[in-house]
Design a protein around this nucleic acid. Structure first.
Length: 591
RNA sequence: GGCGUUGUAGCUCAGUUGGUUAGAGCGCCGCCCUGUCACGGCGGAGGUCGUGGGUUCGAGCCCCAUCAACGUCGCCA
């Protein structure tokens, strides 16, 4: 008893032989040979094999009753496994613990799926029994990586003189943008708190409060439909700094990510990270969050078709409002007619009118080959960088649509060619976004990202003449085609901030109702400031090679924003509604 | 709200042109087994084929509706 050690299941090695230990964990697998029973005992650290011998009468009898996921405490003296019975596949495979005593701490029902199995249960089942899903090595690893990343982020910012400051979750609704989650007030019947979509205004006020460098691992809430990379509540590393320029913030954030990759993944990322302008990103990749793990750039070829025999493209080429884009499909000459039909269907489903293509294998073929003479063919080959047996796909149409479709087609090609390797990481910055954009429905001017973003210095004059031409001091960090987050230099002068709000169509009255406290704060010596927020869930997802952020969140919501384990949201007792002064109005029956 | 994919045993899936009693692997239960590690052997239980309607002599399969999960568009200051 003197040398009894409580040990982790993944920690034992031959050097522990001779130690008497207590091993606590779950029954991972059981191999009952009748006269000898092997139990793999599992905890977060790993697995250790425990053996039960019939000579230990009562203990052996008890071991015969063990089943998957029973919780056990085993006592025994670690020993090397007999020669020839080591398991090289197991970290602890050179040793085992012959049990002297067994205590069954708890029994388990037969689990709905096998924790030890290779095959993955449907997500529906995993989320329903999340506590069992969390026992699987993959989830344990993902949550471990998540912890390490968050810790690396905190360490980095701590080392750079940032203060982590908590901001409240019960705050004032600031209309515009995503839908707020609202929390009814009992004390103030009929009034509501909003949960923060981000701590944006609060962190700016911290800067006005003179805190200098702020960071927070902040929970954010947006009442919008979830996606594989979006949850109604999510976590971001939120950062704000005073007396900084755009490059200062970008450098700080870039280095924080560099530090995370170094500390957690032991990987060096490029220094500096590539930087693209918004215009370049749209032109070359058809996206403001380009996946740079592969090249396959979009190439403008309107010039080649202008005045040519292919009348559809020739006429589109006459106007700058249109775009004709070529994308190389490496070795695409080997594709079948059916493959091209599939690609055509794909681009049609996302808004294109059709897909033209040429193949350059053994002579030139393809849907528009008869309209393309030798000289055009040569220009297309050179423009698109064709080599060997490539195909070239063409998307043509209204500029924004053609760009968007071509950008997605680029991703589709890469997907088919296996170029989107989850083990590779291609970061880039995208900046130079327009400050405003036109709302596609109302035609009115709205902000591209948020109304606190400052324009580039010297562009204030465009405010009244050509607001859509103003460039924002805004920057996005992109990884593998995902937006990790965005930041900007903020407006710190109250007059200018008011001007922006008015440009967006708000009256003085509306500005004061919604942002009065903030506008007032700006008048008391607000320093120049800027910052950024990065989505932790997406960072962890990509670092783990996962394709859904649900796999790196312990208790995620499903696509209907439900927690299927606890069955939330759910109704509340009538008394609770009465306390809050709320009445539920049933929606009219559909007709 | 639109589009797409999926829905068959506890889990993962197969199920041909519409045709007898719907199958497999894993898991589960029982018996046997002293060196396995995805232990092995023998036997067994387990199904409203998501739900409702229709076509048909006959539907897991065809048609209509509907529900759910996932993906995506809308949406995401």
């Amino acid at each position: 008893m003197d040398n009894l050690l409580r040990v982790s299941c993944g920690a034992l090695s031959p050097s522990d032989a001779g130690k008497t230990v207590e091993l606590d964990g779950w029954v991972h697998r059981r191999r009952d040979h009748g006269g000898l029973i092997f139990i793999d005992v599992r905890d977060r650290s790993g697995i250790t094999q425990v053996t039960f011998d019939p000579s230990k009468g009562e203990t052996f009898a008890l071991a015969e009753t063990l089943r998957s996921e029973d919780v056990v405490s085993v006592r025994g003296t670690v020993r090397r496994r007999p020669a020839g019975t080591e398991n090289v596949k197991l970290a602890t495979g050179e040793v085992e613990v012959p049990a002297d005593a067994l205590e069954i701490l708890n029994r388990s029902e037969t689990p709905p799926f096998v924790i030890a199995a290779e095959e993955e249960p449907a997500e529906e089942v995993r989320l329903r029994y999340r506590y069992l899903d969390l026992r699987r090595p993959r989830m344990q690893r993902n949550l471990t990586v998540r912890h390490q990343i968050v810790k690396a982020i905190r360490d980095y910012f701590d080392e750079h003189d940032f203060l982590e400051i908590e901001t409240p979750n019960l705050i004032k609704s600031t209309p515009e943008g995503a839908r707020d989650y609202l929390v009814p007030s009992r004390v103030h019947r009929g009034s509501f708190y909003a949960l923060p979509q981000s701590p944006q205004i609060l962190k700016q006020i911290l800067m006005i409060g003179g805190l200098g460098r702020y960071m927070q691992i902040a929970r954010c809430f947006r009442d919008e439909d979830p996606r594989a990379d979006r949850q109604p509540e999510f976590t971001q590393v939120d950062v704000e700094m005073t007396f900084v320029r755009q490059d200062d913030v970008m450098q700080m954030m870039e280095n924080s990510i560099r530090s995370v990759w170094r500390r957690v993944l032991a990987e060096e990322i490029p220094d500096p990270l590539p930087r693209l302008s918004y215009a370049e990103a749209m032109r070359d990749y058809g996206s403001d969050k380009p996946d740079l793990r592969f090249d396959l750039r979009l190439v403008d070829v309107a010039d080649v078709f202008r005045g040519g025999a292919f009348s559809l493209f020739a006429s589109l080429a006459e106007s700058d409002a249109n775009r004709i884009v070529a994308i190389r499909y490496p070795n695409g000459a080997a594709l079948s007619r059916r493959d091209f039909d599939g690609l055509t269907e794909f681009v049609k489903s996302i808004g294109a009118n059709g897909l033209a293509y040429l193949t350059f294998g053994d002579g030139m073929k393809g849907s528009i080959a008869r309209f393309v003479d030798d000289q055009m063919a040569q220009r297309l080959r050179e423009g698109a960088g064709v080599e060997g047996n490539d195909a070239v796909l063409f998307i043509a149409g209204e500029h924004a649509i053609a760009t968007d479709v071509a950008g997605r087609l680029r991703l589709e090609i890469a997907e088919r060619l296996g170029l989107r390797d989850p083990k590779r990481f291609a970061f880039c910055w995208v900046s130079g976004f327009p400050l405003f954009e036109k709302d596609s429905e109302t035609g009115e001017i709205t902000f591209s990202h948020h109304p606190f973003t400052a324009p580039l210095p010297g562009q204030e004059a465009l405010f009244d003449t050509d607001p859509l031409a103003i460039t924002a001091q805004h920057y996005d960090l992109v990884l593998n085609g995902y937006e990790l987050g965005s930041g900007s230099i903020r407006n710190h002068q109250p007059e200018f901030q008011r001007k922006v709000f008015k440009r967006l169509g708000l009256t003085d009255q509306q500005i004061d109702d919604r942002f009065g406290f903030f506008m007032e704060a700006l008048t008391y010596g607000a320093p120049p400031h800027g910052g950024m927020a990065l989505g932790i869930d997406r960072i962890v997802m990509l670092a783990c090679g996962e394709s859904s952020i649900r796999d790196v969140i312990a208790f995620p919501k499903n696509q209907m924003a439900r927690d299927v384990m606890m069955d939330a949201p759910s109704g509340v007792p009538d008394q609770a509604l009465r306390d809050l002064g709320l009445t539920i109005v049933q929606p009219p029956a559909a007709t």
